[in-house]
């Protein structure tokens, strides 16, 4: 995966709005081919402005953006037929049925074959589970159904890249799960998925890579495992004091004891001790071990460590 060219790459991408507000500041983003890329950041951090620049809707103030290897917004006409997008929620013609909405969007694409249009629209509706409501006016759709119809519009043709801005917004837990499995199956077909969200667990569940943005700047990007890799040793035991003493002797640092009888600490980096040896040492010292293992730090912890602020803060 490393050697394949990036699906999205930006260099110094910057957008300053007319009011002088700096929405995106020198963004260097690389989305590897075949990844499910989580684009994280609180509301107002510049995610949507970035996506709009990638889709050629907004002209960057400076910097460059390439999508599928072509410069944007210059190559809009050749690139965008291979890209499905859901930007800032769905937008529909309320007086048209769900099916007619998709027919309209498809006829806007000059490279889409009009002969296969009806079939492709039907398949897209099937894929998002809207086939039964296809003839209903979009005005009567619930928020979740609108979201699905927006997704269907992105799936009208086989795409190389899907850009999904907050795709699970307004969906119930069941709907969220369905969207996640849809994203996974698309990714399995080889489609690169660029997924923006302010929900950390959503990114953690489906994404292979992630980037974090706050206040218009990119803080970090890379494989999700690497971002959240600060795993800590966790021992559940009634004998916390003994545990701390033994682990300290074995080189474990930053030891913490929680009230419910759990001791956590960072493993010494070099050489990394065998966990079985650590456990044996604890037992040999007479410590009663109830639970033992590595606890992976969540992306949320990583985010907090990176930004030093809560996730709900608007940038």
């Amino acid at each position: 995966m490393e050697e394949l060219p990036a699906v999205i790459s930006t260099h110094g991408l910057t957008k300053r709005y007319r009011g002088g507000q700096l929405a995106v500041d020198g963004l260097d983003l690389t989305v590897p081919r075949g990844s499910v890329f989580g684009f994280l950041g609180p509301n107002g951090s510049g995610k949507t402005t970035t996506i709009r620049m990638l889709m050629g809707l907004i002209e960057p103030t400076s910097g460059t953006a390439r999508v599928l290897g072509e410069p944007m917004p210059r190559a809009v006409r050749t690139v965008l037929p291979r890209v499905g997008a859901l930007i800032e929620g769905p937008a529909l013609y309320g007086f048209l049925s769900g099916r007619d909405n998709l027919l309209r969007y498809d006829s806007a694409d000059p490279t889409a074959d009009p002969r296969t249009r009806r079939d492709r629209v039907g398949e897209a509706l099937d894929r998002v589970g809207l086939a039964a409501a296809a003839s209903k006016k979009a005005r009567a759709y619930s928020l979740g159904m609108k979201q699905r119809l927006g997704l269907a519009a992105a799936l009208l043709r086989p795409r190389d890249l899907l850009v999904l801005d907050e795709p699970t917004n307004g969906l119930d837990p069941q709907g969220m799960r369905e969207i996640r499995s849809l994203v996974r199956s698309l990714a399995a077909d080889g489609t690169t998925v660029f997924l923006s969200s302010h929900l950390l667990d959503e990114i953690e569940q489906v994404c292979t890579h992630a980037a974090v943005m706050t206040r218009g700047r990119l803080i970090t990007q890379g494989p999700v495992d690497a971002l959240a890799a600060r795993s800590r040793l966790a021992v559940t035991t009634p004998d916390t004091a003994d545990t701390v003493r033994v682990l300290k002797e074995l080189g474990v640092t930053d030891l913490e004891t929680t009230a419910d009888g759990k001791v956590t600490g960072d493993l010494p980096p070099d050489p990394v001790p065998d966990l079985a040896d650590l456990n044996a040492a604890l037992v040999a010292a007479g410590v009663r071990v109830r639970g033992f293992g590595l606890e992976r730090a969540s992306l949320e912890d990583a985010f907090l460590a990176l930004t030093g602020e809560g996730f709900d803060v608007a940038g």
Partner: peptide, 18 residues
């Protein structure tokens, strides 16, 4: 106003063509 413009443009309808 209804937001459908952005979806027509990313379809991509092309600005001149639209």
């Amino acid at each position: 106003n209804s937001g459908t413009l952005r979806y027509l443009l990313v379809a991509p309808a092309g600005r001149t063509r639209l």
